[in-house]
Simulated assay, not measured.
Amino acid sequence: MTKLPLTLGFDTSGAYCAAALLRGTEVIASANEDMARGQAERIMPLIEEVLTAGGATWQDLSAIGVGIGPGNFTGIRISVAAARGLGLALRIPIVGVSHFEALALGYDAPVVCTVAAPRAKLYAQTMNDGTAAKAVLCDLDSLSLPDPTLKAAGLGSHAEQIADLTGGPVVAPQYSVEEAIARQAMLRMHDIDLQPPAPMYLRPADAAPSRHAAPVILAETQQ
Rank of each mutant, 00 (worst) to 15 (best):
Y107L: 06
D129I: 14
T126A: 13
N128E: 12
A172H: 05
A117H: 07
G167L: 10
D164A: 10
V177L: 14
Y107K: 08
P199G: 11
L145M: 12
D164M: 05
L194F: 11
M200Y: 12
D164N: 09
D108Q: 12
D129W: 11
A159T: 01
A185Q: 13
P173S: 07
Y107G: 03
A116V: 07
Q195K: 13
L145S: 02
N128T: 13
Y123P: 00
A180G: 04
A172D: 08
M186Q: 12
G156M: 11
M186I: 02
T149C: 06
A120Y: 08
P169W: 00
E160S: 06
L187W: 01
A120F: 06
M186V: 04
G167E: 02
A132M: 12
E179P: 01
R119I: 05
L145T: 04
L137I: 15
G156T: 11
C138I: 09
P197R: 05
M186D: 11
V177K: 13
A135N: 13
A198D: 02
L105Y: 10
A116E: 10
P199M: 09
D164P: 00
T114A: 02
M200A: 14
I192K: 11
I192Y: 00
E179F: 03
E178W: 01
L194N: 09
Q184C: 11
A180N: 05
L165S: 04
M127C: 13
I181E: 07
A120H: 13
D129M: 13
A102M: 04
K121P: 01
A132G: 08
A102H: 06
T149F: 08
A182R: 10
A180Q: 07
D139T: 13
K151S: 06
T126H: 04
A152P: 03
G154Y: 06
I192N: 00
L145N: 02
E179L: 02
A198K: 05
P110G: 02
V136N: 10
K151H: 14
G168D: 00
Y123I: 07
T131R: 14
S144F: 04
A152S: 11
P196E: 09
T149Q: 14
D147H: 08
T126Q: 09
Q161Y: 00
P110E: 04
P148Y: 07
D139W: 06
V171T: 03
M186P: 00
H158L: 00
M127H: 14
H158F: 01
P173T: 09
V136M: 14
T149E: 15
V177N: 11
L122F: 13
Q125C: 15
